[in-house]
Structures are given as structure tokens and as C-alpha cells.
Amino acid sequence: MADVTGVLDLRRSPLADTAFGVTSPGLSLDELPFRSLVEVRSPEPPTAPGLVWRLGPAWWLVDDSPTTEPALEVPLADEVRAANPGCPVVDVSAQRTTIVVTGEHATRLLAHGCAIDLTVLPVGEAVQGDLAGAQVVIGRTADELRIYVRPAFARHLAAWLTDAALPYT
């Protein structure tokens, strides 16, 4: 492959060109595009770099830095496969995009469209459920909420979040 960077540059994230983004003291919203995401089936937490979210019984989502080489599958998939022999691994990097929500109003913002009690979601844990009509994964890191949403729903969710954020910005 001759022009690797060029091919990577041809990618478009679901919220590119939508002017999505909120920046205010109490709330900020942004898309984190092109994360390397793989789903792993394993009874135990898989060995993997980056964030590892539990999605269900024996079901995990790994979130790591974007790939630097264009391929049918992100290298993270093989990396996780090698580290967790026998565990099914699927590249879902383009199956979901990531929206990062930070600020003191982050949790309350989502409560306008999500019936799950996120105020008690511990750092390092994730829930799957519905947010504004879209099925999502919501994970909490030390200082942010990460929403993983299917690209097809991303613009709807971004529009909804932007509107919901109005009173907080």
C-alpha cells in the first residue's frame, strides 16, 4: 500500500462536518473519532490495552487509540486475539463512534434521555441501554462519560445532545 496516510485521511467519522461539539465550563461534548474498538467474549476480563468495559456476562468492549495503518481489521483485534487465546474477538471500530461528555452537568445531561441511574455508575464500569432512542454503551472514566453509539444513530444523538445541553451552556 503506497500511500498509507492518504488512505487513512480518506476516512470520515460520523460526526465530521456536523459542527458537533459543546464547550462550556460545566459541560463539554466532543466526538472522539476512529477509536480502535474490539468486542471480546471471555468469562474473565480480557488482557488488553486501553479501556476495557464489561458489556454483559462474558462480553467486553476494548477501547484503544486509533489505528495508524489502513486494514480490513484494526491491529488491536489481532493483538487482543493473541493475548486472549480462544476468546472470540471482533473488530467493531467502525461499528461505533465515541462521544465524550465532561463537566459537572455530564451525568444530569444524559438523565434527560436515559432512564438508567448513571449517578451510581462507578469509574471503570459501563452500562448498555437506550439514550434518546439510540442503543448505546455508556462508560465512566475518572473524569468523563464515554458514549459509544452506532454511526447510523450518531447524528441523531449528537443533535439530541446538543439540544439537551442548551440549558447547561
Partner: peptide, 18 residues
């Protein structure tokens, strides 16, 4: 609530949509 107009029901679009 705010589920009105374009937000009334999620609109799904492919990544070729534009």
C-alpha cells in the same frame, strides 16, 4: 418533550449518506 421535529424518532443514515 424534546422528542419532536427531527428528534421525534431517531433518523438512521449510512456513512455514504452525504
Amino acid at each position: 418533550g424534546r422528542n419532536r421535529g427531527v428528534l421525534s424518532d431517531p433518523v438512521r443514515v449510512s456513512q455514504v449518506h452525504d
